[in-house]
Nucleic acid binder design. Structure first.
Lengths: 201, 201
DNA sequence: ACAAGACGGTACCGACCGGTACCGAAATTC
DNA sequence: GAATTTCGGTACCGGTCGGTACCGTCTTGT
């Protein structure tokens, strides 16, 4: 039998929380759909709040690993982030960003869940800044640009959630391309900074 | 005494829903803080869901009226939308966009609350498209640009919610300025399209 | 002055919430 | 093979959920 109860709880809770919301899913539901006994749940977690934090922490790692894997597979350029997003948006079970959703549902900014969600976005921004630095940009403008790219990412996610189509990823990518072209990295050739960004592929 | 019970219910519910979330606030709370009797509530609304829809519909009108008022006061240009946003972000009770929050909390896309929230964003996009058309842009590119500006608005809102500062409004404004400069309206003078947008004031 | 209606207050309903305690069965460990 | 641990199942707790029914009161229109 082993100690797979904890893993099943995390899997079931993550799916239900993401699909229907944290407050909308009770412990009862999670126990029924995971097949875990009530006592076992409270042996592994002090309560529902701890489960939420554990789910978010695991998803944070998994999501950033997935993003890095997809971006490197697509070419490792900053704009590839938006192509990775498009894949995510096209999934039938897409329901926005779990961390944005958590911050919306958890009003208290001091809540552990809220903190985990906020930290996630910061780490994504750091990753994007790394992609920009790899293009030859200096650290400070890279960090500032990364902030703006993450703003575009969040805007695309919210728009995709509202419209139910992956199109916003391409729109955000186009905006990001214009943004990056306006501030080319120092090592870039003597090309016209007003030129349209090269076709991707 | 008059028939102010309905208005008090809407006021209290709007404040509580926005501050703490729809699911987080029970009818009990709304009755206690509004001073309205339980029976009176169910005389005015068929249930909590109807109250939610009524609150959103009223807020939709009020929010768009507020935006139009602020934008015209600031100059009536498309970029003024972001300066209006900055005022909103600076408020101590700012907790994101009530309609985004509703869509996040209400997972079902067919829910009336979800529909109202989605319709709100579309009407904001139409308003922004009108601002762009007033600058001399053709309808089709104006609508496409408006979509992207609303994406920036949503990104700024989510970022402001996460960081708790009004700074994202200025960042989104800068991105929007680059976006508009890249596609100047046909009537614009022979100025260099690569030039920095003129200082606002 | 009087009737009609909107009002606030309360008791109550079944259902579900998160959480605790206890049980017997199964797997692991020694 | 026996002890320990983890497991699933269940009964139960107080509290709150959304919703209904009924009460007396107070205002308003006439």
């Amino acid at each position: 039998m082993a100690t797979h109860a904890r893993a099943r709880l995390l899997d079931t809770a993550e799916a239900l929380f993401y699909a229907e919301g944290i407050r909308a899913v009770g412990v009862e539901r999670i126990l029924a759909e995971s097949g875990v006994g009530r006592a076992s749940f409270y042996r592994h977690f002090t309560g529902k709040d701890a489960l939420v934090v554990a789910v978010l922490a695991r998803r944070d790692r998994a999501w950033r690993d997935w993003l890095a894997e997809r971006v490197t597979a697509l070419g490792g350029r900053p704009l590839d982030v938006f192509d990775a997003l498009a894949e995510r948006f096209a999934r039938a079970d897409f329901r926005g960003c779990a961390f944005i959703n958590t911050m919306v549902e958890t009003a208290d900014p001091d809540s552990p869940a809220h903190r985990v969600a906020a930290a996630h976005k910061q780490q994504v921004a750091d990753y994007v800044a790394g992609l920009l630095a790899a293009e030859g940009r200096a650290p400070e403008p890279a960090a500032a640009l990364a902030r703006r790219l993450v703003l575009l990412v969040d805007g695309a996610i919210v728009t995709a959630l509202r419209e139910g189509t992956p199109a916003p990823a391409a729109e955000a990518r186009a905006i990001a391309a214009a943004l990056l072209a306006a501030e080319p990295p120092p090592g870039a050739g003597p090309e016209d900074p007003c030129a349209e960004p090269a076709a991707r592929g």
